[in-house]
Write a protein that binds this DNA or RNA. Structure first.
Lengths: 208, 208, 208, 208
DNA sequence: GATGAATGAGTCTTCATTCAT
DNA sequence: AATGAATGAAGACTCATTCAT
């Protein structure tokens, strides 16, 4: 009973912390003071540091969660019978739930083994979505999976300052534009070599 | 003669500073120490602070320059006889020359009157480009100038960390996709109300 | 019965705490976190703080115990029939059992009345040992009790960092050297006035 | 002129810092806050950190200076014609000028290459002093150079709290006792194997 | 006018102490 | 009475800004 109460409280605190961290980091940038997160979560600094031993560890956790949401989004897309709708759902979900909003830090922090694993799962699921769309002939043929991933990443970069409903609204519109641009056959040939994972490699350094 | 020499030297110093600041900020992020800029420019801290009394002032100057490049890009677009090519050139130029790379700080720093003015000039020029494209029927009819501006802004958000050639390459491809998506007639209707400047207002707060 | 059981348990806990504290402090230094002691003792922080209301109180207790061991060592020395062997045994025991290992903190922490009392008892016993050795003519005549006490203190100062067997070995040798140096008649006259307790006074401040 | 003035000021500041650091560290322990040193030196924290990039670096510098004083002491000892007086002078000087007062931290901080070099020079000079004394038959034959070095180290450990003249006075007396104990022939055989550098090795870890 | 050392407030992190369970 | 999570003050270190030279 007591233990369960403690665990419940700990879980609630952890959730509060993660929410606060996400809020603060996406609105104030990754250089926001840790104390701001603690205050936002309504806990002391010590409590934050009990759960996450460094600021980096907190960021790693947030990234991991974002990546897991990306995997879920991809799986939801695959569950969709229509290939195009599946791909569009994936992209819209990723951008919409901000699962990519933390991708930017991936270049700043150490990438853990768990993060690598999740990233690979996400990439594989995305790969299947893209392949299915290509087979159905609904996706312009010169688009690669990496193009799609980076499209999501680019659209996930948050505007600085406090988040406004306007941002969200316009982003939805831009996303429709981009999705229309992804549709087969595509008006203009994409420039340069089609990017592959191998070529892109160093997006997050090398796996540990 | 001496005066002219002084002025020339001052101008040269200022240019060195701005180049250094642009270099340092885009490679190390906006939290790079001011001393790094001074070192990169090869001047002492005092000289930097003589010209720009705060770090913010330096950022404001860089933003202003970026905006002016936006105006130039729009004017170059208008000089293009083909309405679509003009618009595309504008967008490509803005994203390509990173004139929007500093847009992210616009939410962090105070926006000066001069910046407001330049922003308005840029918006007006963009407005003309968009109107011309609409009249020519080459731009999907549900797209507004603000959509275009924010498309540029979104594509201008740089990836954090050291910039890689891969990023640039892929961004070119994404841009082609987005431009294809902008073309008339547009496959999918853009969702929500068309955004207007007045509605968007609060992007950078209210003009001083 | 229950009460006795409780008392026994409390006593056992206290012993565990003291052992853990001694272990942790001597291996990690006095700046070791209190939590390390609680973990080593296998109890929660609350239990530790129930028994010792501050870290200082714990240190005071350890010091007191060390002093009591000093008294015991002196009494053991007095029990030795040979005056020189008695004195040497005292010194060797004090240095060897690290009863003085906590002396360094005596300058850092508040000295309690109980500590003062025990210190006086130890000094008195040492005084008797020294007097007996002087009377037997085995101790160089210019050595005072305080000299002996401070010799022990100096030899008790531990090397920082993890204790190595090498340290102990060499310390035994140095101790033999010092003891030889204490023997009558002494080759070189000791410099300065013979120190007395009154003169030394301020070693730990004034008694409360 | 200006440069020379700057250099002079910088040198003066550096000296002030080193003096303050020595003072603070030896009286308050090595865990004394860096800010205490800055305050004692009458400079801001930034100035301290400009010269010494970490607290450890400051300690390394202090250690190095102490070691250099040790080398000087050994050389002064060798300059003394009488072998015994030379050795005694060396020991007395090292203990007296507190050149060994910082030896304790050597186990706490990273030992730099420069420190290793200086330590070796000091050890070699000590070796010569000891060998000369042995040859002259004035030093008990079972004493090794390492015994002497560690005798100095042990006597160099400072008493905690504010330094009192009493400490110094008594230490002088204890030192005479120890020196008498070092004299040939020695009353009691030293216990255990004679320690050698190789055996002791890990005193400060392994050289870089 | 230029230089770069000095300043000190602000950030991350630790740990003595408290307190709800 | 025991537990261990929560608190927040304090310490190491950084960097925007000032100022003596």
């Amino acid at each position: 009973m007591t233990t369960r109460g403690r665990q419940a409280e700990a879980a609630r605190n952890d959730l509060r912390l993660l929410r606060a961290a996400h809020e603060v980091f996406t609105t104030q940038g990754f250089d926001a003071p840790v104390s701001a997160i603690a205050k936002q979560a309504g806990v002391g600094m010590g409590s934050l540091y009990r759960r996450y031993r460094t600021k980096e560890e907190l960021l790693q956790r947030l990234c991991l969660i974002a990546m897991e949401r990306g995997v879920e989004a991809a799986e939801a897309g695959l569950a969709e019978p229509d290939p195009w709708e599946g791909l569009a759902l994936y992209i819209r979900t990723c951008v919409g739930n901000r699962s990519g909003a933390l991708a930017p830090v991936a270049g700043t922090i150490e990438v853990t083994a768990e993060m690598w694993g999740t990233a690979r799962r996400a990439d594989e699921a995305a790969e299947r979505l893209v392949a299915r769309a290509h087979e159905a002939g609904v996706l312009r043929s010169d688009v690669t999976t990496l193009d799609v991933s980076l499209l999501i990443e680019q659209f996930s970069r948050p505007a600085p300052g406090p988040p406004a409903p306007q941002h969200e609204h316009v982003k939805q519109r831009l996303l429709v534009i981009a999705l229309d641009g992804l549709r087969a056959p595509g008006a203009t040939a994409l420039p340069g070599e089609p990017p592959t994972m191998e070529w892109y490699q160093g997006r997050w350094g090398t796996p540990p």
